[in-house]
Design a protein around this nucleic acid. Structure first.
Lengths: 221, 221
DNA sequence: GTCTATACTACGATAGAC
DNA sequence: GTCTATCGTAGTATAGAC
């Protein structure tokens, strides 16, 4: 791997584990066994590294969504979508743990973030409309915007919420992500039509089982 | 006002405006026209100031909730409760903009935060049950926990969400808080019984009007 | 591309006079 | 209680050799 890429990978790892605020450029260099000077050859400063990480995040996002374009049923579609979102948030969780602060001191990043957010909101909104048309959900026009917003808040801050709840510092694992997805089920549940109720609850049970599996696996290790 | 209190007030103000991370003890002292030495006479360090601010927050919370104990109807009760919560979050928003980071590097604070959280969750949960018993909402037993959790996430991170959405750096004002409260309405809406629907929508319209007032007032200024 | 060495700065914190 | 003066440290960043 090129040094530049190594720096990005190590930074993500260290930021996630110990918090972006607690990790300096020197830490990153030391962790990789390279000199600070070398790090500064590849990046102008720490903000530059964060911006590069965000580029990687954005690329990931686009690539993952491409693989999702196959026409499957709308319920699976939104679930897979949410799954991807949770996984990406987990992979870059230092970023989301710190979202308002990180964005406020980096206007360029905030602009990029806003643009991607707009697309995601658009996508979620259109997925909900598809579910409406397929008569899986029954959402009134004036409810659509609020529901989209609540879905965004829940996905964006789910891990942050978990981190504030758990007593000792938590390990973010697959079970945490499935638990987040189950909150999405809870949000959508009141809007599910009678006709789709069975499928919906089956899907929910599947994710409950996945969460349980992840939990027991975790204990086994 | 005593110097100690002045330091707390100024710190809250500066932290909210410019972010806790960007404000040093020297900034606080300079802002008050006192010496750094004087500040350090009153507080051992910056973390000590933050802990003192949190004590003020906790006191505020308890006092506000005391004034709420009068038996009013359960719907007004939860709305007033949420109103208080939003206002407190707004008053200490630097804290919530930074929640996971601030808590992870201050275990004592995290412990205090967790304890208060437990009480709030308990309180919200019992309020929802009252609404159930009064047949204003119809929440099944297995839905209660998820709904409580979604309410917590939405209130806790509403302002953080707003800050990430608005293009240029946002002014958090009354309209923002009412908008947050309307998200609470959106969360509860699917669970409202037919019998209580009219009251619920009337209350919602009231808050919509309040938000509009706040918006126009803001433009007038 | 990578290293060593170093300069600079900001911040946290304390000592000691008043 | 408050000030002035100052020290130590940690983090950022660059220069210049290899």
């Amino acid at each position: 791997m090129k040094t530049r890429d190594k720096i990005i990978v190590a930074s993500i790892e260290l930021f996630n584990e110990q918090g972006e605020r607690n990790i300096t450029t020197n830490h990153i260099a030391a962790h990789l066994g390279i000199s600070p000077g070398n790090l500064y050859y590849h990046f102008r400063n720490k903000e530059d590294i964060i911006n590069a990480i965000y580029s990687e995040y954005a690329d990931d996002l686009i690539n993952q969504f491409k693989g999702l374009s196959d026409a499957i049923n709308p319920l699976d579609s939104i679930l897979l979508y949410m799954d991807i979102v949770f996984q990406l948030i987990s992979k870059f969780r230092f970023f989301y743990s710190n979202l308002p602060v990180l964005l406020s001191k980096n206007p360029a990043l905030k602009k990029r973030y806003s643009e991607i957010q707009k697309e995601i909101i658009q996508k979620v909104s259109s997925m909900l409309q598809s579910l409406n048309e397929a008569e899986i959900l029954s959402i009134k026009d004036d409810e659509l915007e609020d529901l989209t917003c609540l879905l965004r808040i829940t996905t964006t801050f789910w891990l942050s919420y978990l981190q504030t709840q758990i007593e000792d510092n938590p390990k973010i694992d697959d079970a945490s992500l499935y638990e987040g997805l189950l909150k999405i089920f809870a949000l959508l549940s009141p809007y599910v039509t009678d006709g789709a109720r069975q499928d919906f609850e089956n899907a929910r049970d599947q994710y409950k089982a996945l969460k349980q599996d992840a939990l027991t696996q975790q204990i086994a290790i």
